[in-house]
Design a protein around this nucleic acid. Structure first.
Lengths: 129, 129
DNA sequence: ATCATACTTGATTAATTGTTCAACTATGAT
DNA sequence: ATCATAGTTGAACAATTAATCAAGTATGAT
C-alpha cells in the first residue's frame, strides 16, 4: 500500500496558476535577502533569556560585568560572552573606568522593542504573567 | 608563569557592596522568569529568515502552503514545518478549504513588531538596505 | 475504487548556540 | 615587583534547530 516517491521528484505543488496574483504580490513586496537576514539576526539576539535579562538590567543604570554577574547569578565569563554579542549587534555600548567596564543601552529603540515584545506576551497570556 | 585556578573557585567578582543600590534596582525590576522566557521564545521565532519571509508574504493576503512554497522557493515540507512553528506560537492562523489550507497573520501586533524590527535595521544601516 | 494533488509528520543530519572551564590580559594597591 | 580583582577569550560540550527525506493522511476528480 506504500507508494514510494521517485528519487528526483520535486516536493512542490503544481497549482502555480491558481493564485498567481497573490503569489506575485508576495514576491514583489519581499524585502531583499540582506534586510530579512539582518532583521532575523537582530530578533535572534533578543531571543535569549540571559540577553533579555541583561537588557532589562541596563534599563535603570549602567552596570559593570561584575554587577550583571550578581544580578543574573551567572559567571563572569557567561556574562562577558553575552555582552560581546550584544555589543557587536550595537544593542549596548561600553565605557572603561579603572578596572571596571560599564555597559549601557545603545539607544531608546532597544528599550521600545523589548517593551513591545513583553507587552505582546502579557496581552497574549491575559496579564497572567 | 601560569597560575592555575583551584578547581572550585567561583568565577564571580567580589565587589558586591560597591554598586549595591544599582544591583538591587536591577534585581527588583527584573520581570519574572516566565515572562522573560516567553518573550525570548517569541523573539526567537522572529529570528529566522524563512519565518520572516513567510510573515512578510502574509502581509498582503492569505496564502496556502503551496503558494508560500512558490514564493520562498522552498519545499512544501520545509514550509509546513515552519508554519507549524508560527501557528503554535499564535503568530498565524489557518483555515481549510477543500484540499488547501490557507494561512494568515494572527493579528496586527505581529505586523507592527516585524515592521519595527526592519525599521531599526534600516536606520542602523543608513537606509542602505 | 483509483489516482493526483495538497499538506503533514517523524527521523536524520548538519549547523548553530549558550555555558563552563581554563587560561589569558589589564588595572590598581601594597 | 607582587598580588588580587575585573574582565576577556578560545576550546569543548551539550542542547537546540532548520532543511531534507521518506513516508504518511486528507480531499476531490475520474
Amino acid at each position: 500500500m506504500v507508494i514510494k516517491k521517485s528519487k528526483n521528484q520535486i516536493d512542490r505543488c503544481k497549482s502555480f496558476s491558481l493564485h498567481e496574483d497573490k503569489i506575485n504580490m508576495a514576491k514583489k513586496n519581499m524585502p531583499h535577502d540582506d534586510l530579512i537576514f539582518k532583521t532575523g539576526e537582530f530578533f535572534k539576539i533578543l531571543g535569549d533569556p540571559t540577553r533579555l535579562k541583561i537588557i532589562n538590567s541596563l534599563f535603570y543604570s549602567e552596570l559593570c560585568v561584575c554587577d550583571l554577574s550578581n544580578v543574573l547569578s551567572l559567571s563572569l565569563s557567561a556574562i562577558s560572552h553575552q555582552l560581546r554579542v550584544l555589543k557587536q549587534a550595537d544593542l549596548i555600548k561600553s565605557r572603561k573606568e579603572g578596572k571596571n567596564v560599564f555597559y549601557s543601552l545603545a539607544d531608546e529603540h532597544v528599550r521600545q522593542i523589548f517593551y513591545q515584545g513583553t507587552e505582546h506576551i502579557k496581552e497574549h497570556y491575559n496579564e497572567k504573567i
